[in-house]
Structure formats: C-alpha cells, structure tokens
C-alpha cells in the first residue's frame, strides 16, 4: 500500500469543503424556509418550538384550493403544449440537416432571454387584441408556453441528439409507415427526453408569477396568492406553501432518480 501523500489529502479535503459550501449556497435559503415552516416563532426561531400551525392556516386560507387547482392546470397545460412544440422543433432540427441549423436553434432559444414581465404584458395585449382571449387560464397557458417551449426544447434537443435517426430508415424499409415508425421505434427511444421536457415546462409554469399574473388578473394561482399575501407582510403560511411546493418537486426528482437507478426508466440508449 502506498502512503497517502499528505499534500494530496489536504487538496481533497479542500475540494470536499468547496463542494459542501457550493451546495449550501444553492440550498440553504430553501432549507431555512422549510425549517421556519415548522417552528412557532418565525422571527427568532432558536431554539425551535415545533408546530404544524402554519400548514393548517395555509389550508384554510381563502383561495388556496382554487389557486392550487389553477396552478396545476396551468402547469399541465403549459407542459403539454410546450412539449409538443419543443419535440416537433427538436425532431425537425435534428432529422433534417440544414445549414441554417444554428440560426434556427437561436430563434428557438431566444425566448429564454426575454424578461418574464415583458412576456406577460405582451401576451396579455396580444392574446386579447389578436386572439380575442380575455384574461383566463387558457391565455395564461399560451403565454407560459412561449418561454417554456424554449426551455423544453433545450432539454429535449440535448437528449435527442443521441438518437440515431437511421433507426427510422430501418423501420421504414421493413414496412413501417411514418406513423408506425414513430410509434414503434422513435417514441420508445425518445420518450424520456419528452418526459423531461414536460417536467420542465410543468414546473416553470406552475411556479410562474409574472406571466400568469398579467394573463389572469384576479384568478388565483399559488404564486399570485403568495405574492398577494406579501402586501400584509410575510406570513408564516407562505413558508408552508414554499415548503410544500419544493418538497413536491424534490420528491419527483428523487423518484425519477430511483426509477433510473433501478432500470425502470432508461435515459440512455445503450446501443447505437
């Protein structure tokens, strides 16, 4: 056995410390809110006295149920719409070699860089004047889908780049119509990518405040409720709400992780 070089040991310890600090930077505020949501005195919560009071208050809050349902509708609707568009865009871009590929890609991704508040205001005006849509859930779904499509596209295109489109040719030569080719060969290989795109679109729209707010007016969603209650000072119910939403998302990610680990889900195509 070789003796471990003490300099190397120190370097490793330093790297580990750096990693921990980085994770703390990313997650500490979130975990702190989760902690607050369970304690009695949220102003100076040390030492803690645990309680579920904030959660009970949250559940009895006006509009909470309606807001949750609306947020789910917007999340699912936006997720479906943006996944559909992003999948078509990604397939088109990857399957058909074009010398404009780079430019086409930039235009798919550009909505990522537009301020949400601008997307909100512009789609409010556009949806009303041109589409004749009053402020409602549909209008919010369409507005959220503009930038969620760009995000979903990013996720989907990165995964689909690994799919071998020659498999589509193989299926067609062996008698599969284009529709059957998609169902039998393309989709079973690319669905994890599509699912990833949906998941991203769903979460973005579920959590979105600015875009939804402009297109909904008085119709509540979880983020607009949270924002509305702010006007009366930060209430502990908000901590409970934030914790529930975050816990829900972490839970999905953890489930996905284990499904992947145990092989029920495959994100990678092992064979070219």
């Amino acid at each position: 056995m070789n003796a471990v070089n003490p300099g190397r040991k120190l370097a490793l310890a330093g790297q580990a410390l750096l990693l921990i600090l980085l994770y703390l930077f990313l997650y500490f505020p979130i975990f702190y809110i989760m902690y607050l949501s369970f304690v009695e005195n949220t102003v100076w919560p040390f030492p803690p006295e645990y309680t579920l009071e904030h959660y009970i208050n949250l559940l009895t809050l006006d509009n909470f149920h309606q807001g949750l349902v609306n947020s789910l509708i917007i999340g699912i609707g936006t997720g479906l719409l943006s996944t559909l568009f992003a999948t078509m865009a990604a397939i088109g871009l990857l399957k058909y070699q074009s010398r404009w590929r780079g430019l086409l890609m930039i235009f798919y991704l550009a909505p990522l860089f537009v301020a949400h508040i601008l997307i909100g205001i512009s789609s409010l005006i556009f949806n009303k004047a041109i589409l004749g849509l009053p402020g409602n859930l549909l209008s919010a779904i369409i507005a959220n889908a503009t930038y969620a499509t760009a995000f979903a596209f990013l996720v989907i295109v990165a995964q689909l780049a690994r799919y071998d489109w020659r498999l589509d040719d193989v299926a067609m030569v062996f008698g599969a119509t284009p529709a059957k080719t998609f169902r039998e060969v393309t989709l079973p290989n690319i669905w994890p990518a599509i699912f990833g795109g949906f998941f991203v679109g769903f979460i973005l729209a579920f959590n979105n405040l600015e875009i939804s707010f402009y297109n909904l007016g008085a119709i509540p969603t979880l983020p607009t409720i949270a924002w509305g209650t702010l006007r009366h000072g930060i209430k502990p119910e908000l901590y409970a709400l934030a914790s529930i939403v975050n816990a829900f998302i972490f839970l999905i990610l953890i489930i996905l992780y284990f499904l992947l680990k145990m092989g029920f889900l495959k994100l990678d195509i092992k064979d070219r």
Partner: peptide, 11 residues
C-alpha cells in the same frame, strides 16, 4: 436490408 453498424432497435 442489412444496415451498416447493424442498427438493431435498442429497445
């Protein structure tokens, strides 16, 4: 047809 790189359906 027998394709280059075999191109078996991986799934």
């Amino acid at each position: 047809m027998v394709f280059q790189d075999f191109l078996l359906f991986p799934h």
